[in-house]
Design a protein around this nucleic acid. Structure first.
Length: 615
RNA sequence: UGCCCGAUGGUGUAACGGUAGCACAGCAGACUCUGGAUCUGUUUGUCAUGGUUCAAAUCCAUGUCGGGCAGCCA
């Protein structure tokens, strides 16, 4: 493994062996050097309106990575300010995915809070202040142990701050910096202007603060229907930055919220909730993607105008991940799920964290991938080969080698005694001696891969052919004597003879034979359903133009019944397997004793396939 | 015709005024009881034009190209 030769930061081998470096980490370490913060605090703030995907994984690795490298904390916070789009299903899946991804790497950096806790009101220099510090499972923050011995911890929710956000809104109105606006949504659009055309002031802009205060309280009390009024910041309708043109801070939504129930009928907008949530939690570095760059002036404006007593968080933006041969937007992923084009959010072909997990990808591989792609402000397209490489590198080190035949062709060894069974010793993982060995039964009839026999092979084909020899891994060198075909001319069986002295360790075992193939003893074979996954799309940029669904790969899933060596009967979900010469596999969650189901995580690199493609 | 951001081999990134490096991909070879892994070698790059400087990928200016911004979404 070759990595840039920076200082090793790792005592135990989880994740990349070196400390990454990028422009955001540079900012963080400058801030640390300048003693601007006593402890770094980042946050991962998903909206619970979909499942997490590999783009979120990049963000999680960044935010938790910075926390662990600096001895800081990364809060998991649900940015749940829009009850009509969010669901408890997503808050649960998100927690599961985050914990899985940071497992044994940064789980001691996960910032949580005592269950049910909301911000404390404190006074700093005579100013009222709201604060909700983090706790971690390691308890390096005393907050968690305040009352009960063992406190149950939970993630942060922006919706836990609705009361405080409301207070902040009141303060803004009192300062003459926000007003209740009676424009309809359509009128608000018209008044906003366009990027190259200034907007115009709302007729309600100069409404007295007392009147706005009264109206805002009545909005909260539920006196007005949806869409009839908003709370708006009073900034500048002529600003070249559209987000500074008196942005909406609150809207009316008579809707139940998954976390706060029916308590509220006004909900804060992202821009108002996010900066203040960061502040309340004591976030130091609020890291988000590039599309929020234009929102930063508003982020800073709100915090500054409120004249808050504690240090303010700073927002920094990086480029989101674009990966070839897939789509990344939650909207499109949801479309695939809702239209039944995949089996669910965790379909192994999905770029979701749950899909990748189900496919057999490990958190280590994902973290290594995130490390390799880096963090910049350049909006590029990452080659899937980078992901695939990270997955292979990880699996090569950990996978148990097994023999399994995906498309069986029966071979009868005519000179091998009928009924005889030999137990052959096989290596579990040549990359890891501690994985040990196992025995594989061998008998007169074996299955080999159909691809490993050709009647009229092209040049450079060094597997089995009529009259040719090949080595059966761990067993004998065999020679193809005759080809048995059915009435239609299809090859159904091979009759071969074995060089009985050529067994591993035997007299003629050292003979130079170009090809070695895998096999499974017919009477001992165990059946398994094997799901062969391929890329979900046929083109690198499915959403480049037109309907992305036009580019779905019709062959992204093929199901076969494989013949497996008997030990595979005891396969477990925690392990990864390499079916030798084929691919890496993991047990699917639908697998059951007696009814094995394997997912192909990723194929082995195949130089022969490349060779055949050339001609 | 507005504002913000960006541009380094095929792709993704490093170089923080001083030898353009790394990874992936590609190609060639060695080794191999996995056509895997491993090892060796190798092709290909600073968007353009000016300026500042002994010296520019790096600083400045202009241009070109790309991305983002007009939800009561996040």
């Amino acid at each position: 493994m070759t990595k840039p030769n920076t200082e090793p930061s790792e005592e135990h081998g989880a994740g990349p062996a070196n400390t990454p470096s990028d422009f955001i980490r540079d900012i963080v370490s400058d801030d640390l050097k300048a003693r601007r913060h006593s402890q770094i605090r980042t946050r991962f703030p998903p909206e619970p309106n979909g499942y997490l995907h590999i783009g979120h994984a990049k963000s999680i690795c960044l935010n938790f990575g910075i926390a662990r490298e600096s001895g800081g904390i990364c809060n998991l916070r649900f940015d749940d300010t829009n009850p009509t789009k969010e669901d408890i299903e997503y808050v649960e899946s998100i927690q599961k995915d985050v914990r899985w991804l940071i497992r044994e790497w940064a789980d001691d950096r996960l910032g949580l809070k005592p269950k049910g806790q909301t911000p404390e009101t404190q006074s700093i220099n005579g100013k009222q202040d709201f604060h909700l510090p983090s706790a971690t499972v390691t308890g390096d923050e005393k907050t968690a142990t305040a009352g009960a011995r063992s406190t149950i911890l939970e993630p942060f929710y922006a919706s836990d701050y609705f009361e405080q956000l409301y207070q902040y809104a009141l303060r803004l109105i009192e300062k003459g910096l926000a007003y209740v606006c009676d424009l309809s949504p359509e009128e608000t659009d018209q008044y906003r202007g366009a990027p190259d055309r200034p907007g115009k002031d709302s007729p309600w802009r100069e409404r007295p603060a007392e009147e706005s205060l009264d109206l805002f309280k009545r909005m909260k009390a539920g006196e007005f229907p949806d869409g009839t009024r908003t709370l708006r910041a009073k900034i500048d309708m002529a600003s070249p930055n559209i987000w500074m043109r008196d942005p909406v801070l609150y809207r009316i939504r008579h809707a139940d919220h998954h976390h706060t129930g029916s308590e509220w009928c006004i909900y804060p907008m992202y821009d108002f909730a996010h900066c203040l949530s960061d502040y309340i939690e004591g976030i130091t570095h609020s890291i988000c993607t590039l599309e929020f760059e234009v929102h930063r002036p508003l982020y800073d404006w709100i915090l500054e105008k409120l004249e808050l007593p504690r240090p303010l968080p700073r927002q920094h933006e990086f480029a989101r991940l674009n990966l070839g041969y897939t789509v990344m937007s939650k909207r499109k992923l949801m479309q695939l799920v809702n239209e039944g084009l995949v089996s669910g959010w965790d379909d192994p072909r999905m770029p979701t964290i749950s899909g990748l997990r189900r496919r057999g990808v490990t958190p280590e591989a994902l973290r290594d991938f995130a490390y390799n792609i880096g963090i910049t402000k350049y909006n590029g397209l990452t080659d899937v080969a980078v992901l695939e490489h990270a997955i292979r590198e990880d699996l090569n080190k950990r996978a148990r080698r097994r023999l399994a035949v995906l498309r069986p062709l029966k071979v009868v060894l005519t000179n091998y005694p009928d009924g005889k069974v030999e137990e052959l010793r096989a290596i579990n993982n040549p990359e890891d001696e501690s994985a040990g060995t196992r025995v594989i039964p061998f008998s007169r009839e074996v299955y080999i891969e159909r691809d490993d026999f050709m009647e009229n092979p092209p040049p450079k084909y060094f597997r089995l052919r009529p009259g040719g020899e090949v080595r059966l891994k761990y067993a004998y060198i065999i020679k193809c004597e005759s080809v048995i075909k059915d009435a239609a001319g299809h090859v159904v069986e091979l009759h071969c003879t074995a060089d009985l002295d050529s067994k591993s360790g035997g007299l003629t075992a050292g003979r130079k034979i170009k090809g070695t193939i895998h096999w499974v003893s017919v009477p001992h074979a165990v059946d398994a359903e094997v799901r062969l996954y391929d890329r979900l799309f046929t083109v690198a940029e499915p959403d480049a133009q037109g309907d992305f669904k036009k580019h779905l790969n019709p062959h992204s899933l093929e199901v076969v019944t494989a013949k497996c060596e008997p030990i595979l009967r005891d396969a477990i979900p925690d392990l990864r397997y390499q079916f030798e010469r084929l691919a890496y596999f993991a047990l699917d969650l639908e697998s059951q004793p007696g009814k094995l189901v394997f997912n192909r995580t990723i194929t082995l690199k195949d130089a022969w396939a490349k060779e055949t493609q050339r001609s």
